[in-house]
Nucleic acid binder design. Structure first.
Length: 387
DNA sequence: ATGCATGAGCT
DNA sequence: GCTCATGCATA
């Protein structure tokens, strides 16, 4: 039963071409999907990483978004080569660690492959400078929203003890590859600046030309900060995560449909993949701005799809005069027929359903009152009916 | 907030 | 078979 209920919904959503502005397709999917669906050609990239070390990188969970070395071969070849060699060295190290950890870290089956960011992550001191390979891989990531961003991650790579700990478990899973631990992202720490692709003059120029803000949009630290801000402002607006998810559909952004509460929650808690975070950020940012704008000018186009929850889950309030009339009717006939209800509704200028519900509630109320007075009557059919 | 599941596109 | 984004259901 339950299954059929949601399976339907699921299927509908799932079957819809997730790449396009389908009503069901929320947004972008994996980086691969993103690439494929990417409406913005300028953002395309490939995930071609040197096959040889690709694997290592994955295992090392060092992958991040990256630009294809091949694709940008001419320009970035040198960079990538350097990164690659470093990556290999790191990967080797990581793999050793992983192997050791694997033994006991073999989680049940699936390890939260979703988890990617951790607050602590960004706070610690950079410990693994080499993680830059991430930056390499980041090459393949694009911003689905077209706001591409990234060339490379920039973060300093602080692996807090806690983080490392987590890292261990992540490493044991293959999912990690796509995860960009903020902390593990490129390590362009004080001493690594030169290695960050983002800082490469050519890249920087390209990014600037594209009007992108890789640093801002891709930096894990920025994402983390945004997620936090987002949450606070959302709460301030009195909007729930579920509300946001639904409201996204009203945003009418091409290719952006509704999202679930789960996803919004994960975004706020940074438990989405780096690519996913980057893909969602602009969308949520757009919602936030629109929502705050609408909240400001209380009533703006009543017709314009509100991005704010129809907060008016309004419970109808019946004015005193009408209420008196209803009570009068109720005294005579607690269970009026549909016709009668319609007549009453018309007379009082209320919606029929409102009147119907009022009578229902009234009977229930009466029942409570009666039972509280005469406990013996409780639970009997007579309750709520004529008396 | 999160475990478990689904389904798409890759490899 | 795998990764990844996402959702449902539930703790």
């Amino acid at each position: 039963m339950t299954m059929s209920m949601y399976s339907t919904t699921d299927k509908m959503k799932m079957s819809a071409p997730s790449c396009f502005p389908g009503r069901y397709s929320p947004s972008y999917r994996s980086s691969e999907q993103m690439r494929r669906c990417m409406p913005n050609p300028s953002v395309s990239k490939s995930n071609t990483t040197h096959p040889s070390i690709s694997r290592l990188l994955e295992d090392a969970s060092l992958l991040c978004n990256s630009w294809s070395a091949r694709q940008n071969g001419d320009i970035f070849a040198g960079i990538n080569d350097g990164i690659l060699s470093r990556a290999e060295a790191l990967a080797a190290v990581d793999i050793q660690k992983h192997q050791a950890q694997h033994v006991h870290s073999q989680m049940p089956s699936q390890i939260k492959h979703d988890v990617m960011y951790h607050h602590h992550t960004m706070s610690g001191p950079p410990q693994r400078p080499l993680q830059m390979h991430h930056s390499m891989d980041q090459l393949d990531m694009l911003d689905p929203t077209g706001s591409m961003t990234t060339l490379a991650p920039i973060s300093e790579s602080p692996l807090t003890p806690t983080h490392q700990h987590l890292h261990g478990s992540y490493h044991s899973m293959n999912h990690m590859m796509s995860h960009h631990h903020p902390g593990t992202l490129s390590g362009h720490t004080a001493g690594h600046h030169g290695h960050s692709a983002v800082h490469h003059p050519v890249i920087t120029a390209a990014v600037a030309a594209a009007g992108l803000h890789p640093d801002t949009d891709t930096d894990p630290r920025e994402l983390e900060a945004f997620a936090e801000r987002f949450k606070q402002r959302r709460i301030k607006l009195g909007v729930t995560q579920a509300d946001v998810g639904k409201a996204l559909a009203n945003l009418k952004l091409p290719g952006v449909g509704a999202l679930s509460q789960s996803t919004i929650c994960r975004f706020e808690s940074l438990t989405l993949s780096h690519n996913n975070m980057i893909a969602l950020k602009p969308i949520l940012q757009a919602w936030l701005e629109e929502a705050e704008a609408q909240a400001k000018n209380k009533r703006r186009d009543p017709d314009a799809p509100s991005v704010l929850p129809a907060g008016e889950k309004k419970r109808t309030s019946i004015a005193a005069p009408e209420k008196r009339s209803l009570e009068a009717y109720f005294a005579v006939q607690p269970r009026p027929s549909g016709e009668k209800i319609a007549a009453i509704a018309e007379k009082l200028d209320l919606k029929k359903n409102v009147v119907r519900v009022w009578f229902c509630n009234q009977r229930q109320k009466q029942k409570r009152i009666v039972s509280s007075v005469t406990p013996s009557m409780t639970g009997h059919g007579s309750a709520g009916f004529g008396y």
